[in-house]
Design a protein around this nucleic acid. Structure first.
Length: 338
DNA sequence: CAAACGTGGCC
DNA sequence: TGGCCAAGTTT
């Protein structure tokens, strides 16, 4: 296991306006006052970032899951594939698909050489199948623009289809050991509780959260990468959304939320994502038929999955518009061969 | 910035 | 039973 020691976090200024992070100064930083600085400055405060790093990384060394994309042989491509699949999808459902995917397409160029429809088919029931299309598109771009190697540069990663702020940082950090704030839903929840003292982070990532993540990032590159994986794992295994297990938390003694008596979340709950009866459900049914078919499917067969004709047609049109389905002559459809 | 975008397991 | 949640991105 990694034995890198955590180092002091970068310390940033905060102002009354930005409500930014207020991280206690390390003795090496002359610019920032200590924990008892201006009481009017709002925002989270972490007394000792270095001890947080040490505790969370030590916990990670003992409890990290042995996931295939964390093994050295996974490589940057394996990391990237896993990140696409893990977007909004639980680890347990990703594991079998990931293994099949890497066995079939061990390098980006292998995937790029296959039809996009095969990527959609291999995606199976992971959900959000446009991710499969984007991963295929990213593999093509990597093959064409980067010589077949997953780029190391954050900006180049961000330019690939399906890669946003989180995934670019994750690949750069996990695959290449770079120093980036990796703000996923797990880390955001850990920070919200431990540093800000609230049960849940805001619905959308805020500038204040980015500042906090930046401020808490260890200076040392290897330590920062370790911290990213460790803080994420803590949120996934211990500091979970519903049934957090503070008894197993390495920083429970410093957690602002716990020390405040674990006050319940205020404000509106996250908008529930209704599913039954939506276009998404119809799209899912239509695509399931196409995935299981080896030959073009006549429209009449697709018509059986949903009884409401207007919504059914809208869903099918949407799939075609998204490039997930290819219309053929004779009112037939299939996964795209392009 | 809100809304769209799949699927299945859990309490 | 049904709402909530899961390593987000795109428009």
């Amino acid at each position: 296991m990694n034995t890198t020691n955590a180092t002091n976090a970068t310390v940033t200024h905060s102002t009354a306006e930005d409500a930014g992070p207020r991280v206690a100064a390390s003795s090496a930083d002359p610019h920032v006052a200590g924990p008892s600085a201006d009481p009017h400055v709002a925002g989270p405060s972490v007394a000792d970032p270095a001890s947080l790093h040490t505790s969370v990384i030590a916990w990670f060394d003992r409890h990290a899951r042995d996931l295939p994309w964390r093994r050295p042989e996974a490589g940057a491509w394996g990391v990237m594939v896993s990140e696409f699949m893990l977007q909004q999808t639980p680890v347990a459902r990703v594991l079998p698909v990931y293994e099949q995917w890497l066995a079939r397409w061990p390098r980006p160029a292998d995937l790029a050489a296959s039809p996009s429809g095969e990527a959609v088919r291999a995606w199976g029931r992971l959900g959000y199948p446009r991710r499969a299309l984007r991963l295929h598109g990213a593999a093509q771009a990597i093959t064409e623009r980067h010589g077949g190697d997953v780029p190391r540069d954050h900006a180049q990663l961000l330019a690939l289809p399906g890669i946003g702020e989180y995934t670019a940082a994750a690949v750069a950090s996990f695959a290449y050991g770079q120093r980036h704030p990796v703000l996923d839903t797990n880390v955001r929840r850990v920070f919200a509780r431990a540093a800000t003292g609230i049960q849940y982070p805001p619905n959308a990532t805020t500038a204040a959260e980015r500042r906090l993540a930046r401020a808490l990032l260890p200076d040392d590159e290897a330590a920062a990468a370790r911290w990213a994986a460790a803080s994420m794992e803590l949120g996934a295994l211990v500091c979970t959304a519903k049934s957090e297990d503070c008894g197993r938390c390495p920083i429970a003694d410093r957690c602002a939320w716990r020390l405040a008596g674990k006050p319940a979340h205020e404000g509106p709950a996250r908008r529930g994502q209704t599913y039954a009866g939506t276009d998404r459900q119809v799209r899912g049914r239509l695509l399931a038929v196409l995935r299981d078919a080896t030959e073009p499917v006549p429209r009449s067969a697709l018509d059986t999955v949903w009884n409401e004709p207007v919504q059914r047609a809208r869903a099918l049109d949407g799939l075609v518009a998204d490039g997930l389905v290819e219309p053929l002559d004779g009112d037939r459809y299939r996964l795209p061969l392009t």
